[in-house]
Design a protein around this nucleic acid. Structure first.
Lengths: 157, 157
DNA sequence: CAAGATTGAGTAGTCAATCTTC
DNA sequence: GAAGATTGACTACTCAATCTTG
């Protein structure tokens, strides 16, 4: 390995800031959401994904969330046990299934959403400018696409 | 609760993108780091914090990382058991201690750093412009300061 | 053999209760 | 009583192994 290109102060600030922001933000949002609705931030993410797409295969939901397949599988089995989501057969490819939100899951996310969206606004969205939000979305697409390219070469998951 | 101000498409993209990016990026970085050096991303963060500050109290390290106090406490006891960090008495306030990196901890992070920094560059830093990195650092400061203001009102920790 | 998904064992994180010192 | 820190029980995540279908 040649002499490492260490991070500059501003690069270091960006990277550590990203990690710190995520830690602190998700901890508080998760606490609020759980206390008020009984859903975790993870539950909420699953329900948002399925609600947006109507029905979805685990592999696609996992990609949208950025989760490992076994994490998703464990989490889904807990949510299925609680009656929030359900599985349907996938006729075209019997290795996979479709996931759907149950009526109870729909009630749960509809009850949780107003307060949670307010919290996300208060702590995150409303503290940033439109330009900053656009940069963030651009960064996400850029980094995630790079990660996926990386994972085409070997087995990432 | 009045009619909720739902997130616009671009706000939703920014927020979900942030969560997805963090999930996907930390999973891959953690796997690489653990495989090549035996340190987790969390271990690395602790060692970076302590190395930068020389000696540090748990409460300050927890703030820098954005971690809950019990998470830090559990993690430190594991790192102490592995000989990576150690505690010293804090003469001015005997409720607290100082944390220091051991010689072994220093060896571990120095061995891990070159490859890890390369990975952070390859997957994150080098894919973004300087302007984007600056925006990210600004966002972090802004959001984290808001969170701390929020936590002055009640007990967040 | 590759891809979608599950399982079990081990590790890590959260919450509430507790202890000590200020 | 509040702040710094720890502990134990519970929940969640990771990794590797496995199973089934393409």
């Amino acid at each position: 390995m040649a002499a490492p290109r260490w991070l500059s102060d501003s690069e270091h600030a960006a990277w550590r800031g990203f990690l710190q922001t995520h830690a602190v933000l998700t901890a508080l949002l998760n606490r609020e959401l759980t206390t008020e609705s009984g859903l975790s931030l993870q539950d909420y993410g699953v329900l948002v994904g399925l609600t947006e797409h109507g029905r979805m295969r685990p592999v696609d939901l996992g990609r949208a969330l950025g989760w490992e397949k076994s994490r998703l599988s464990h989490h889904l089995s807990r949510m299925i046990a609680r009656g929030l989501v359900a599985k349907e057969e996938c006729p075209s490819d019997r290795r996979g299934q479709f996931l759907v939100v149950t009526a109870e899951g729909r009630r749960a996310i509809e009850a949780a959403a107003p307060a949670h969206v307010e919290a996300v606004r208060r702590l995150f969205i409303d503290r940033l400018t439109d330009d900053q939000l656009d940069v963030l979305a651009t960064i996400s697409r850029r980094v995630v696409s790079g990660l996926q390219a990386e994972c085409d070469g070997d087995g990432c998951g």
